[in-house]
Each structure stands twice: as C-alpha cells, then as structure tokens.
Design a protein around this nucleic acid. Structure first.
Lengths: 221, 221
DNA sequence: GTCTATAATACGATAGAC
DNA sequence: GTCTATCGTATTATAGAC
C-alpha cells in the first residue's frame, strides 16, 4: 500500500526494510488514516494514533519523524487511488459507456475507501497545503487530457455542449459526497451509523442523472 | 446575522444588548468565521481569531466564554442560510422551474457564503458533533417534505423515477463543491487564488445536467 | 469592558536506559 | 527497536488591576 519513501534521503542507498519495519509502518499508517480522516490533521493527536496502532508514542516517532510526515505519507498513497478511475477513461468507448463506468468506479472507490476520501476532503478544505503541486500539475494535466476526449464527443454531437472539466467536477462531487458527507446522508435517510446500504440507490440516481434524462421534456412551466 | 443566544441562560430575563456588545460580538463572529472556515475547529486558535477581530484574547472571552461557544454560535447562524433555498421549493411550480431555481439559489448561496459552506463541510466531515440533532430532525423533516413534492412529480411522469432524496444529495454536492473544493477547482482550471469566475460555467453545466440531457440518445456503443 | 500576567494543560518531539 | 521520563511550546482559560 505504501509507496511513500519520504523518510529515505534521495541520495542515500535505499536500505531494504525488514519485515518488522514494513509491518509497523503499515500498522501506523492504518491507525493514522483512521484518526486523521475522522479528526482532521489538527484534531488528530500522536497519542491517539499511537494508541490505535497499539504502540508507544516514541516508538511511532522512530518510524516517522513527525506527525506531518505521517500525514504526507498517507496523502501520497492516496493520490493513486484518487486518480485510478479517471485514468481509465478511454477515447475508444462511447460517452454512455465511458462516463457510466467512470461513475461506477468512482462510486465504488467512495464506498471502498471512505476514510481516504475524507482525508482528501480535509486536505482540500484546509487549502491543500501539501498537495497543491499535485493538483496544479499531475491532476490538471490528466483532467486536460480527459477533458479533450469529452470535448471530442461534444464536437461529434454525442454529448451535450458543456465545459467537460465541470462535468468531471460534477462526477467527483456527487460520488465523493457519499463518503465525505456520509453522516449527513445517514441522518437524513434515518439510517444507523454503520449502514452504507444507500450506495445502490445512489448508483441508480447517478445513472439517471448523468446518462438518462431527469426532467421529462415538454413540461416547462 | 446572529440569532444565537447560547450565552444567555434560558431562565434569566434576556437583558438587551448594548450597541458595543452587538458590534463586538459581530466582529468576533466575523473573525471566527474567517479562521474556522479556513483552519477547521482544531486548527483555529483564539489568538488568531482575536487578532482577526482586532481584540485581545481575554476580551474575546468576555463575550464568548469558550472557543466552542463561538463555534456553536456560528453553526447555529449557518443553518438558516443552509435551509433557506430548500424551503422555497413549491409544489405549485413545474419540476423544471422549481429544480432549476433551487439549483440557482443553492449555487448563489455557495458563491455568496463560501466560508459558511466550508464551516458546514468541516462540521459534517468531523462527524457533525454539534449539529447531529439538526440533521436528524429539522433537516430530515424538511427533506421528507420536499421529497414528497418531487415524488408527486415522479408519479405524474414529469420527473424520471429516482429516489428524490438522492436527487437532493446530488444538488447539494454539486453546488457546494464550488465553495468547499474551490482550491481544487481553481488549480485544475489554472485560475489564480481569488478568482471565482467559474461560477457562470458551473451554472450552465448544472442546468444541462439536471434539466437537459447530457448524453445524446441512441449512441450507446 | 479591557488589559497584563499567568495558571493549567495538552501536545509534539527528544533523551537516554535497556 | 522499544520503553519511561521529560522537555519545550502552544493554547485554552482565568485572575485581578485599571
């Protein structure tokens, strides 16, 4: 899971990690994801993370030399999960199949990685101090690339005229909403805390919205 | 702006506030909104809020007896702003006009009150510790009421079959996204920090999405 | 009402034994 | 590698003069 090498100086030869190192780092990252995604960066404490990792605080700081370093490691790991569904959009397919499967992948990612989604949302809300570069370069570049595909479908008349990047924003916001605002969703629907049964209905809603037609034609006021 | 009376014990006779009191409380709430919405509850400090309010920290605590009390006062004020657009949905209108104007109101609210939107988002992300009751009662009740209107349009065949509450979720997420994730939106679009010119294009996108048809029929591949 | 000074504590990070 | 003990600082909140 961890592709983060932030602790290793780039010039030093990367010493292979022992099994214990790998296990402990993984345990710390798991615990930190839990706490950071629930409390935010400033609301999380090393004490709590260490407790969740069943480890002493100094021992935790033996593996990561600061709270921020753990946070950055998590964010770094996150970006691949975040980008993966978008990368798969192909110019070969039709708008209906490509957009449809993109929404399904993104919604599935929301269901499978709600903590990662909330960690990401917290970071953006805080002004994206650690991933501003990623947003401006990698993400922007990928969005531009995929937006060009959508634009070609618009030019073909297969897709309604719109700014393709805003279409992506709409897909991101609606799918991530079910992870980031799950508490609100559950309260409004009258569900108990752990219940995520709303995802099936969410999938139907988003398919109607993005691939079908919501308001019947010829019924304007 | 402030309808919060949390400082006044409910049994005590509500003493009228002097002009200075009103002004200072307003100045504190303004400053706190700025800081809380940017840093989150735990990231915000009384020092910074006091500084933004151009006031000493003890003086600030003369008006609000704790950091949490300021936060709750802001959230309380917020809820009216949040609910107002939803309240206006009327069973008299047509789906197209009612949904269309709801989206415009919600998007306008996002543009006009981005800090309030981020404060709300932070609260939900944190598990809604202060407004869980509101979500379960007032909001749920209003949603149920408006969902019934949408459902009647579905029964009439004016609106595509879907769960009306999820339709509301989609409207909330897409409109609030432009306030809550504005940093990401700007980075992806290549805009400078203060620029909110994307709202016009956002409005067009959402109109196409919710009132028009995105994918042309008969192009399934 | 407003201030300076400070109490009380929570927290990130380190020292040093084992 | 892991621990106990602790340092230094940031932060919430209060005391008490003016």
């Amino acid at each position: 899971m961890s592709n983060s090498m932030t602790r290793v100086a780039s010039t030093a030869p990367a010493r292979a990690k022992t099994r214990i190192q790998q296990e402990n780092e993984a345990r710390i990252l798991q615990a930190a994801l839990e706490v950071f995604s629930e409390k935010g960066f400033h609301g999380a404490t090393l004490d709590r993370i260490a407790g969740a990792a069943d480890m002493s605080k100094p021992n935790l700081l033996y593996y990561f030399k600061s709270k921020e370093e753990i946070h950055i490691a998590l964010l770094t790991d996150l970006l691949d999960i975040w980008l993966a569904p978008l990368r798969e959009i192909s110019p070969q397919g039709s708008p209906a199949t490509e957009i449809g499967s993109y929404i399904r992948r993104k919604l599935e990612s929301s269901r499978e990685f709600p903590r990662e989604s909330r960690l990401f949302a917290n970071e953006i809300l805080a002004g994206a101090p650690h991933i501003a570069g990623f947003l401006q370069t990698e993400l922007k570049q990928l969005v531009d690339e995929k937006a060009a595909i959508l634009q070609s479908w618009i030019d073909d008349g297969q897709l309604a005229p719109c700014d393709p990047r805003h279409l992506l924003f709409a897909i991101w916001s609606t799918t991530q909403h079910y992870a980031d605002f799950s508490v609100q969703v559950r309260h409004v629907l009258g569900l108990v805390p752990g219940d995520v049964s709303y995802y099936d209905e969410a999938a139907r809603m988003l398919e109607t919205l993005f691939l079908g037609r919501l308001v019947a034609p010829g019924t304007e006021g």
